[in-house]
Amino acid sequence: MIETINVFSVELSVSLILIFTGAIVYAFKNKPNPYVGVRIGYTYLSEEAWKKANTFAGIFLMLSGFALLLLSAILPLIVYLAVFLSLLLSLVVLSYTIAKKVYEIEDIKVPVTNYRVESVNYKPYLILQLISIFIYIIFVTVVWDKLPSTIAVHFSIGGKPDIYTNRFYGILATLVIMLVVPALTFFSSKEPLFVNCHRNLGFLTLIQWFVVFTMALVLLYNIHFVSVETIVAVCIGFVAFTVVWTFWLWKNRS
């Protein structure tokens, strides 16, 4: 009984939060700001795109909230969560599509005077990133037989392994994670206003190599070749490096 009440109260609060967020987004639909609303490149640069995307997002969120509120009475938690996540995903995709369309139509109306072609060649970066995955796969085939059937894949801040999984699925999941940066690189070259990192492809590539290197260290840990302290040290080192780099970028921003 207590469990049922808890599940229901979680569903209830999620639905109410959605309605509340929707109302706030809707309230700011005519006031572009850096805090509340659909904030992507298109909506930053075009007031019209901001208005249309946020009007849609506000109404969509409120309606989703109401729908989930009704469904919370009948749906089991797992189905409720699936519906919730698909609604959120639809929200992101649809707001993005609306903002992009409005921006592009507006773009056609504005005279062009003098533009420069900003050719960012993303291919060398992408190739470098994919090479890292390739090397990792070779490394996996080399150490595969030495790996235990269950491997540690995640560590607590204190350096204790806290998630274990089957070696095949663990490595499969790792490979999926390794595809995130190459996907971002590819997408940012096509849609610079959505994933605004086409100027930082070098940094992204560095992150990719760090991720792959760390994942390889994790495998080495599983065959007792490196200690967990080494992994922690590498991670802390990289975070420190990122902080310094970000500060440097911020200081030298144009």
């Binding site: 490149g41 640069l45 773009d107 504005v110 062009v112 005077t113 003098n114 533009y115 420069r116 072609v117 900003e118 610079p192 206003l193």
Partner: peptide, 8 residues
């Protein structure tokens, strides 16, 4: 995309 004062 090309750059003017904003991406075009």
């Amino acid at each position: 995309w090309v750059m003017e004062t904003r991406p075009r």
